[in-house]
Design a protein around this nucleic acid. Sequence first.
RNA 1: UGGGCUAUGGCCAAGCGGUUAAGGCAUCGGACUUUGACUCCGAGAUCGGUAGUUCAAAUCUACCUAGCCCAGCCA
Length: 544
Amino acid sequence: MEIESNFIKTIIEDDLANGRVNAVVTRFPPEPNAYLHIGHARAIITNFELAKMFEGKTNLRFDDTNPVKEDASFVEAIKEDIKWLGYQPANIFFGSDYFEKTYELAIRLINKGLAYVCELSQEEMSKYRGTLTEPGKESPYRNRSIADNLTLFQAMREGKYKDGEMTLRAKIDMASPNINMRDPVIYRIIHITHHNTGDKWCIYPMYDFAHPLQDAIEGVTHSLCSLEYVDHRPLYDWFIEKCETEHIPHQYEFGRLNITNTIMSKRYLKQLVDTKVVNGYDDPRMPTLAGLRRRGYTPEAIRDFVLGTGLSRINSTVSNEMLENSLRNDLLGKTKRMHVVSEPIKVTITNYPSDTPEKIVSSCNPDNEDLGERTIYFGKQLYIEKADFLPEAPDKHWRRLSIGLEVRLMHGYFIKCHNVIYDENQEIVEIECTYDPMTKSGSGFKERKPNGTIHFVEATTAVVASFNLFEPLLVDSDSDRPLIDRINPNSWEVRTGFVEPALEEAKPGEKFQFVRNGYFAADYDTTPQKPIFNRIVELKSRFK
RNA sequence: UGGGCUAUGGCCAAGCGGUUAAGGCAUCGGACUUUGACUCCGAGAUCGGUAGUUCAAAUCUACCUAGCCCAGCCA
């Protein structure tokens, strides 16, 4: 699947056609202060796919200009997530690699009379800034001499001042209707150890100043970001122009991708982890890439989903059914289709002649013979799903087992139910059936049509396993209620059931279709003695 | 209330002055089926509103309406 037509692709095509750029360079610039989630996947995929499409390149650049929030551990996690998604950055850079260069350009601005050292406190600065409807006031420090600014800025760098004591500001326009242009701070003092530069610096550039310069230094042609930066674009262009960088990058904005019933915000993800609603950032219910990975989502499906949702200048909320569809499409042809009974009910085949089960060799996926065959068993004692039996068929659409009805056991035989055994509470404990030896799977038997096909496992060879069934963490997708009140209490259900013996060998992370049950992945903690499977996604069903 | 961005079927989204207005997801019919899966057929919008420009407008203009973003020494 290729990237669809979208406005950014159109812009790039146009730039290339008109010679405004020779080669496309994009970048994905995360701040190393959180785990990546599926929202980031859109940015990653968009940047990489767009560049790839035009034979350009994409850098991974850690935007680490604020040491108070950042940590090296996130650097590795982010690298791993990008690799998992299937992308290899042309270069891996750090914004902090450019601190020296950024500093020089700040001095250039001072020399041009376009930046000044300001001693307003944070509170005062806020007052001077004005409001959305009223213009701001000029700082009393705005008209210092270039020489004084140079000296002061140098002193800031040398650590002569405490955090917050002064800032370097761009001298633009305190009356601009765009608040970003009202003399924004471009350097602030922070005495803290930086994950990359250690204690070398105590002044750090702000995003608005650093970002365009990083793009310029790296030769980025199309700098993509989200919609909330639209108002920052004039500033971006101002810095590029005034700093007279050799290369001139351009910023383009696109909408964020939201998914129904899914929280993406850093704050709430953290809240879920901190309040132990989930077991960490790689909990299989989390929308983090680490969580989705553990759940069994595939990078191919995520890519297909992102590309399928397109790109526009709208913050969109896409139904999670779309993601699930991508998952099923990807998993359909590449998973083995195994027999698993998650809520068992016992079946005795009363006319089965032997106490030892017979072996049946079956295809793992009739649509993909490369997946091979495995042996399943059929015998006197079986398990089927509770939901596949009702003493009496509710209506003529019932395609499962009932007294007097005959169904096909997939890969086995036709069986017909003739008796139900109840306990003292009128609960069904066992059902009794007969089988027809003539109807063996693969025999080509066509004399009669069964009332549907269900699956089973043979009881003496079955292996006990547990299944983790997930639902969305949130309910009420359109609600404005606080998220904490929308937590789904049933987001993780554990069931114990039986799996066919071949599943003992499932390797952690290996994915399967459990016939008529859904797609599952063996959990990281699975063992042959105690297999554990996570449900990735249910199968679609028209059963009403 | 200043500035900016956006508005195409339930949800995404193509379309860039002339097409019966792509496609995907979802939904509803139907066929097929050793998964009520898959696959296959079929069904639905006149493009936020109004007024203009034009032989011709979802596409251009004006006005209106609605939603989102901005007043961190965060990114």
